[in-house]
Design a protein around this nucleic acid. Structure first.
Lengths: 349, 349
DNA sequence: CTGAAAGCGCTAACAC
DNA sequence: GTGTTAGCGCTTTCAG
């Protein structure tokens, strides 16, 4: 059994072994109808015997289509991005595509050219830009149009005209969390925000502010403090709030990791939760139901959102491919859900 | 400026625009020395102006080398695998390779042929098999040799002769955790294990058992219970242990997520930790220092291990490429670290 | 230093 | 039904 170097069996080798032309082998591999049953069977047997694996590379080159998607992410060490990636890989797989993954070393980078080059040079059919909007990291897309030659779907950013964006409604989440605390009878509801160069952090905070304003409750500069998503930062923020907002009876914390830290600090000071201080988080970590006490939180379904993003990009690719009039690029916003557990349920209410 | 369809600028277009042959453009792109300065400058200008991006696909085809690695993982929704992937992406990037990612829908699947085909058909230069060993999911590799035609490095499995494996020493971790509790003066140290079809779970448990035996302490069938890594499962396991091992004064819990649940149950029952019950976990989640009380745990550096795995695969690829005698495939085992926090430090000791 | 020819593995378009 | 020809975008080899 002759083989080319590196052990890759070529279509030509299969063809000659089966006594047909490469074209016929190609037809069999792609299950085209116009092959005689007998021929097909014979070729298939040879394919199996020689363990022939068609080269997707060669096919991509000629078809100008790779059935490969590029995904750009950042912060894989956090749970959010990995859940997102989880959804992406699954959806991509189901759609019959492969996935080329790029992780940005810094989330707020504006240097995206090398990333594009790496993806485009490998002929990806489309790109999912799953890096959250932080600082100016959307500038390269909005100011000077990159026109990378392939469609891009963006995740987790401010919807912009003409760009297909898939996001969770963080503003709504902030409102829901705060409204829930108001309903529970809390009247001095503080906020520990995420880092405010993050779009998501600003949205959650805006939701908090609007919900309080509408309820006629205070939401001034003394009533919130900025964290950086980490548990450590929340301990400091709590300190600040305790000083500058002594009447505070509840906090909407911008993520569960920070909320956990607030729980710990409260436990250390003998502060009762939810009696003395009501807490609502954001994210719904797998651990959150097992905090002391179990944490009320806003659930973001990264997974579903990722699936939507993949569906969108594939829709665009297929329509471009069919030469249809380019699809209008619309945005999708997914509502989060409130999960009520113990940390926010006022006793005796 | 003429372009082929799909907006891809070809080397031929650049060549004709610069008034040279494609060969010369190729030389410039690959920074070969044998080009006149003047020609090089001119070509480079045209490349920039036309935004020419060489096709890595075409190059891969001819060079029989793609500078792309395949990574196969599972359970991306858990923190461990995503940390691993985090390390992989970073190391792969630094080495100048791209990464094709496949996530297995089920961790214990033995159906690996389609996964290989997808990777091999895209000409990956090597594969990192980062799926933990569970049940029989290593059978396909060990019984009938797959010989996929490219080198594979395996992560998180029992070292086997002839296969390059990179793992954390889970057995040692189990010993360290248990020995620490013994040192603290605990004498009835139970274990909540992971699911025992997982190699890692068996290793951790073996470490617990051996450490106790050597200390002359009991480690019988009544002294441990099986969990499934989830917080919920640990609550049940604790129930069981409390009944069948009433003298129990400490527990080595096989991961932090389960340990958290033990902490919560203890808090509910008014059981003091570490006074009434000492706890050591395994993993070191980012949240673990913020539990109530802060959790002593075994830190696994997934990140570093992943970097080692990438370094190994690239070493093998390069040596194969240079036609050197195939490298001996050796295994690497990385020691974990004990992180002592409050949950295991006996008061008054 | 530069270019022409051949071909990586495959498929589209056409012939028979 | 099946084979032949051409060529995807690039690099290798060999002339000049």
């Amino acid at each position: 059994m002759m083989r080319s170097k590196l052990g890759r069996v070529t279509i030509r080798e299969v063809a000659s072994a089966a006594g047909v032309s490469t074209q016929t082998v190609s037809r069999v591999v792609n299950s085209r109808p116009d092959v005689a049953r007998e021929t097909r069977d014979r070729v298939q047997k040879v394919i199996k015997r020689m363990r022939y694996r068609p080269s997707a590379l060669a096919r991509s080159l000629i078809q100008q289509r790779s059935y490969t998607l590029g995904a750009v992410i950042s912060g894989l060490k956090y749970i959010g991005p990995s859940r997102t990636l989880n959804g992406i890989t699954e959806a991509v797989e189901e759609a019959g595509y492969a996935l080329l993954l790029k992780e940005l070393p810094r989330i707020d980078t504006t240097e995206i050219t090398p990333v594009f080059d790496a993806l485009i040079s490998r002929h990806v059919d489309g790109i999912i830009w799953a890096v959250p909007e932080v600082g100016d990291n959307r500038k390269p897309f909005t100011s000077l149009p990159v026109n990378p030659g392939v469609p891009i779907v963006y995740m987790t950013m401010e919807p912009r005209a003409g760009l297909p964006v898939v996001s969770i409604d963080n503003y709504l989440g902030g409102r829901m969390a705060t409204a829930h605390l108001v309903e529970q009878g809390y009247r001095h509801i503080a906020h520990i925000s995420g880092p405010l160069d993050w779009w998501e952090a600003r949205q959650r905070m805006a939701g908090w502010k609007d919900a309080l304003r509408e309820a006629g409750l205070p939401a001034g500069p003394k009533h919130w403090a900025e964290g950086n998503w980490s548990s450590a930062s929340a301990a400091k923020a709590l300190e600040t709030l305790l000083q500058q907002y002594p009447q505070m009876d509840a906090i909407f914390v911008a993520n569960d990791q920070m909320a956990l830290s607030v729980l710990q600090s409260a436990w250390r000071r003998g502060l009762q939760i939810p009696g003395g201080l009501g807490i609502v988080g954001f994210d719904d970590l797998p651990e959150s139901p097992y905090f002391c006490p179990p944490l009320t939180t806003i659930q973001q379904d990264h997974y579903t959102v990722a699936k939507i993003a993949v569906a969108e990009i594939i829709k665009i690719i297929e329509s471009d491919w069919k030469g249809e009039a380019s699809l209008e690029r619309k945005s999708v916003v997914v509502a989060p859900a409130l999960l009520v557990r113990d940390s926010s349920v006022r006793p005796g209410k």
